[in-house]
Each structure stands twice: as C-alpha cells, then as structure tokens.
Amino acid sequence: MRKIFPAEELARDARFIRQTNEQRLSDPRGTRVAGGNASEQLAKLTPGLANGPDRARALMHGIFVGEIQALEGAGRTCWDFEVGEDVPFELKLDMARQCWDEARHCEISVSLADHMGTELGEFAENGLLYEAACNPDPVLRLTGVNRALEGLAIDVFNTMKEFGNLAGDPVLEFCEDWMLADEVTHVKMGSDWLRRLTENDKERLEKALEFQKVVDRLFSFNGFRGEDDDSPIQLTRRFRELAGFSDDEIDEIADMSREARAEAPS
C-alpha cells in the first residue's frame, strides 16, 4: 500500500457519486452549502424555514460523507507517517482514537440519515475534506483537518443540535450532542499537537496556521458559517474555546466569514 493515497481514488460503492472540484466550482448557479445554495438568501438553518427539513436532510448527508472522509483521513495519518522520524507515537495513538470516533460518527450519521428519510448516496459527494488530509506535512495536515475542518464540524453539529431542539426531534438533538463532544476532543487534539510540534519551530507554526486559514476560507463560501443572526451555520464560540481556540482566532474566523459574505454574488 502506498503512502499518501489520492483523493480521486477513495474507495466507494456504486451508490456514491463524486462531484469533482471543477464541477463544483463551475456551477454558474453558485456553490452549494449546508444543504442549501449560495444563491439562496441567507437564513439561519431552522425548522421554521419552508425548506428547513429538506436542507437539514441534505446537510445530514453531507455530514455523513464528511465523517467517512474524516475516518479515512485519520486512518491515513496512522499509515502515512513513521513514528520517530515524522511524528511521535502518541500522535498516532490520537489518530487511531479518532478513527474509532469517526467510525462511530459514520454509524450515527447513517442512522440519522435514515431517521430523516435520506438514502445513502442520494446526494453528490465531494472530496474536499479528505484533500486537506493529504498534506504531506503532518503538522499542516493536523492543523487543516483537526482545527479547520473539525472546527467547522463543531459549528455544524451545534447548529444541527439546535435544529433538533427547535423541531422537538429528540433523536437528532441527542446524537448531535454526543458527536459534538467528540469533535471538541478532536479539535483539541489538533490544537495540542500544533503547540507541541511547533514549540521550537516558529516557521512551521506559521505555515500550519496559514494552511488552516486556506482550509477555513475554502469552507467559508458565501459566509455561510458566521456569527450573524442569519448565518445558516452559527460559529460556536463556547465549544471552540474548550477546544483550544483563542478569542483572537475565533474573531479571525468570524471576520473571514463576513468578508466571504460581502464578496458573495447576490
């Protein structure tokens, strides 16, 4: 088995259809986000929206494929790097633990998708998340995946938990709360390893934070994740603080979302 497994080759059964980045970006109608679309007027994702339940359903499918890719990414980090030469033993143990967590998240998301009436493979999959997990520098990989993407997962799960609460859906609220606990742990892993591995390497720290920003920006299309009342996905300060984000870092993500929103085609 090779080191660094390309995103295009991620193994899927016939139900899953991959949408390439070119296809995604060349859609003149705008980029799809959070089970909705960039061209849609921004609104916080709640059951009160006419298409709220359907958007939540589509978002759950997005979460499900995201969990598969998170599992695959954490698994590859176990394989791609050598203990001692590239990474400490304990980092790999964390990644193996994350594999187990993400496998459970897949199981939870499959069950939730069924609960919401979504079939596996019903929506297109894009490999953006896993692509961030292909970075050959383990510090950059962990920063991009565990801090940027898993940070986004915190925001998404918290929004879905509130959605479940507002809809009176005890299953959704219960599951999202558990997944949220795991994701805070994963983001914290990213924060801790970033600090430990770059303690004496400022340049690498800066590179890693820059990569995190690139990934954060990729997932900020149209400012769909932010702190404004009508941001479809709400930026979650409290859980991000628990996971090792400083106030400045959270402010920066909020600003980035606001910029992306201002730049979005109306």
């Binding site: 088995m1 059964d13 695959e72 698994g75 193996a96 594999c99 199981e107 896993y130």
Partner: peptide, 15 residues
C-alpha cells in the same frame, strides 16, 4: 488498518 480504510469500498468493512 488505518491506511486501508480509504482503500476499501465496502462500507461495513470500512467502519
């Protein structure tokens, strides 16, 4: 096992 996760298409095996 971690490395193989991305290479197997069977969902139950992957998990």
């Amino acid at each position: 096992l971690g490395g193989w996760v991305a290479t197997v298409p069977e969902l139950d095996v992957k998990l």
